[in-house]
């Protein structure tokens, strides 16, 4: 396997540079650039319709980026899709696990999608369930789980192939406060312990912690990318909520 200059230990988990995308006349993404370093928790903050889902579709290669470049741990998504997708884990907003099957059956299926079978899949499934604290429910059917537990299975699923980059598209939608905290906690632990690069798309401002990186996406444009203190300074605001309102000029930001 040839080695990219930009790959290797130093490459960022995700680099998006100059990506634009349109559906017909409708320009959904306009020259979007952002970086998710390894071992960082990066929040992609935007209202509904900001272009978050389209950006995720491009990174996951559901459709090709028409302009610009997307690299996952140094691998160009278009030119080396296999290598790029092997390093990518995704939690989609919509459900990707089968309610009729057990947790283990679901995880084995997703291991298979990455070419992992047999004993290795079993071992990884146990590891992943351990990480999300659902080992004791391994043989239960997914439909018997609560919403928060099902979300955690989705995360376990996306970890089966040990990705370097984890994308989560509004992973806490529809969860109660306790479940939300547990899901966020699990992902933050992964960032700290496994040096995973995480891109967390949300419109909920209270999910941002002071040490996170923040990317503000509004109407397809990146208005800000940097640290939380940087965001406050750039917007001249006292807290993230006011900073977001100041930048986007909206007052409709979700009350948290």
């Amino acid at each position: 396997m040839s080695k990219d200059v930009s790959s290797g230990a130093g490459a960022a988990a995700l680099v998006i540079s100059g990506v634009s995308h349109s559906f017909g006349e409708n320009r959904v993404l306009d020259n979007v650039s952002l970086v998710v370093p390894q071992g960082s928790f990066t929040v992609l903050l935007g209202l509904n319709g900001a272009g978050k889902s389209t950006l995720f579709s491009l990174v996951t290669r559901l459709y090709d980026n028409v302009s610009g470049e997307i690299r996952i741990l140094g691998h160009d998504v278009r030119r080396r899709p296999t290598q790029a997708l092997q390093r990518l884990g995704v939690c989609f907003q919509s459900k990707a696990i089968d309610s009729d099957l057990s947790l283990l059956q679901n995880l084995h299926y997703h291991a298979a999608l990455h070419g992992i079978g047999g004993r290795e899949a079993k071992k990884r499934a146990n590891d992943a369930l351990g990480k999300v604290g659902l080992l004791d429910r391994a043989h239960a059917k997914v439909r018997t789980l609560s919403g928060g537990q099902a979300r955690r299975v989705e995360i376990a699923r996306s970890l089966m192939h040990r990705p370097g980059l984890l994308l989560l598209d509004e992973p806490t939608v529809g969860l109660d406060i306790g479940s939300r905290e547990s899901v966020i906690g699990i992902v933050r632990d992964l960032v700290r312990e496994e040096k995973l690069g995480v891109l967390w798309a949300t419109h909920l401002i209270d999910e941002i912690s002071a040490t996170d990186n923040v990317v503000v996406l509004h109407k397809g444009k990146v208005l800000f990318a940097g640290t939380v203190p940087g965001l406050l300074e750039a917007a001249g605001a006292a807290n993230v909520r006011d900073a977001f309102r100041g930048l986007t000029g909206t007052i409709t930001a979700e009350a948290a």
Binding site: R61, L85, S94, L113, H114
Partner: peptide, 8 residues
């Protein structure tokens, strides 16, 4: 989408 994100 999960199927299509597979590297194969």
């Amino acid at each position: 989408r999960t199927l299509l994100v597979s590297p194969f």
